[in-house]
């Protein structure tokens, strides 16, 4: 059983894990993106519906499993770790849980568009972070040098196998950059055929599906030609992502 897909980015040997995390064994570094902790509470606070308030616990559980399996010395949360800054005021039990995960290792919060300011939970709070040949930031910068690791877009791949359409969160990887899937439980996705992702990823890009096992395939793209793919236009919901 493959737990991940191995590849090299800017000389760093990396593993895109089936659970949706990125593992850099040589540096002992684990990276996750878009946890969106506290999302249900934020929606309720703003007068929306009362969603099941368990997504933070659920996300922490899965993160705990990854950390327990890998024992990283560095954890990077790639932005949008909290659904907004007020959501970072976690209930005590969840704050303690996070503190336990953070104990004994370096922890870096990268700023995201949902959580643009420092959070009072310890760890370092940074706009971006360079480690060896890699640069970690929330939103990919067009034309960035090789070795960029980012999140924000919640990429998901829609593929057809045996006449069935199937959609799963995925990593996108090309020779220069990679984009992580969202790790948070209540997070939607943006299909890989979206113009934003099409424009960012090179022609050789692959998608690594998360799920029971990490499956690598060529990044599903809009077929060449003048047509606007309906799937693409349909999933394009400006302002509702990240």
């Amino acid at each position: 059983m493959k737990t991940g897909f191995e590849f090299v980015l800017a000389g760093a040997r990396l593993l895109a894990r089936a659970a949706g995390t990125l593992w850099w064994a040589e540096a002992g570094l684990l990276c996750v993106s878009d946890l969106h902790l506290g999302k249900s509470e934020r929606i309720a606070r703003r007068g929306g519906t009362l969603l099941p308030p368990y997504e933070t616990v659920d996300t922490l559980e899965r993160l705990d499993t990854e950390i327990a399996a890998l024992d990283p010395s560095v954890v990077i949360c790639l932005g949008d770790s909290f659904d907004d800054l007020r959501a970072a005021e976690l209930p005590e039990s969840e704050a303690l849980w996070l503190a336990r995960l953070m104990a004994g290792r370096r922890w870096i919060w990268i700023a995201g568009n949902h959580d643009p300011g420092p959070v009072g939970l310890g760890g370092a709070y940074l706009a971006e972070w360079a480690e060896g040949p890699l640069v970690f930031r929330h939103i990919a910068v067009p034309g960035a040098g090789p070795g960029e690791v980012s999140g924000h877009y919640h990429p998901k791949a829609r593929i057809t196998a045996q006449g069935q359409s199937l959609s799963r969160p995925c990593f996108l990887i090309d020779g220069a950059r990679m984009i992580l899937p969202a790790f948070g439980t209540y997070t939607g996705g943006l299909v890989t055929t979206d113009p934003a992702l099409e424009a960012l990823m090179g022609p050789d890009a692959v998608a690594v599906l998360t799920g029971p096992r990490a499956i690598c395939l060529p990044m599903p793209r809009v077929p060449p030609g003048p047509a606007i793919s309906p799937a693409n236009a349909l999933r394009q919901r400006p302002g509702r992502r990240g």
């Binding site: 969603l51 099941p52 368990y54 659920d58 439980t185 209540y186 997070t187 939607g188 992502r241």
Partner: peptide, 24 residues
């Protein structure tokens, strides 16, 4: 206009509820 507000599927809500609050 967008016809769709749930940015994540109700399947996820269902799974989450079942795991964390099966008596709901």
């Amino acid at each position: 206009k967008s016809g769709r507000q749930a940015t994540f599927s109700t399947d996820i809500l269902y799974d989450t509820l079942r795991r964390h609050d099966p008596g709901h």
